[in-house]
Amino acid sequence: MSKPAAKPFSTATRPIAPPPLSQHLCEFAARPEAWSVFARNLIPVVGIYFFGWSAALTVFNYWFDGLAALAAIIAVLIPRAMRESQSKTEEGGQRSEIGAAILNTVRGVVTWVFLLGLVGLPYWIVLIPLHDLLLSPGLRYQLAYTPALWFAFGSLAAGHLWKALRMGYDQMPENQLKQRVRWDVYILVLRAVAMFVMAAQGLAFILVPLMALLLTYGELWPERVLGAVFGDPSRLYEYDPDNPAKTRRPR
Rank of each mutant, 00 (worst) to 15 (best):
L135R: 11
V225P: 02
R14G: 13
L118G: 04
D232K: 07
S36L: 11
H160Q: 10
L115N: 12
P15L: 06
A199I: 02
G138I: 12
L115Y: 05
W183I: 15
H160R: 08
L121F: 03
F151L: 13
L127S: 13
V119F: 15
V185A: 15
P79K: 05
D170K: 03
E97C: 11
P8D: 14
L77Y: 13
A6S: 09
A69M: 08
V76F: 00
A29M: 02
A55W: 08
G231A: 09
P79H: 01
G52S: 07
V37S: 06
N243M: 06
L25Q: 02
L190D: 12
R249K: 06
G168L: 07
G93M: 06
I16G: 04
L226A: 02
G117I: 04
G154C: 08
Q171H: 15
G138H: 07
E223Y: 07
I98H: 13
P222T: 14
S87W: 04
A29T: 06
L115T: 05
E27F: 10
R182N: 13
L215P: 04
N61M: 10
L121C: 02
P18F: 09
L77D: 15
P244S: 06
A100Y: 09
L42Y: 00
W35V: 15
I43D: 15
W221H: 13
G117D: 01
I73P: 03
T11E: 15
E91K: 03
F151A: 07
V193P: 05
D184C: 12
G117N: 05
Q94D: 14
L210R: 03
N104M: 01
H24F: 14
Y169T: 01
R224L: 12
E84A: 10
L236R: 05
V189N: 01
E219M: 13
T89Y: 12
K7P: 02
P241R: 08
Y141E: 10
R31E: 14
A144E: 08
L121K: 00
L121P: 02
A148V: 02
K3H: 07
I43G: 14
L67Q: 00
I74N: 09
M172W: 10
L57W: 03
A71D: 01
A158Q: 08
G47V: 04
P44D: 03
E90Y: 07
G218N: 00
Y141G: 03
P137A: 10
Y237K: 09
A100E: 13
G231N: 09
G138T: 12
H131L: 06
P233N: 02
S2D: 04
E33C: 10
G52A: 03
T13N: 12
T216F: 12
S87I: 07
A5T: 12
R95E: 00
L226S: 02
Q176K: 08
Q176F: 06
A194M: 15
F60G: 01
A204P: 05
A69N: 03
L214N: 13
N104I: 00
P15C: 06
E97L: 11
W124S: 01
M167C: 12
E84M: 10
F60D: 03
L177H: 13
W183S: 15
L188V: 06
V193N: 08
R31Q: 14
A17K: 08
G120W: 04
G93A: 07
L21V: 01
Y239G: 05
F230K: 08
L116E: 00
A192W: 08
C26F: 13
P19F: 00
L161F: 15
R83C: 05
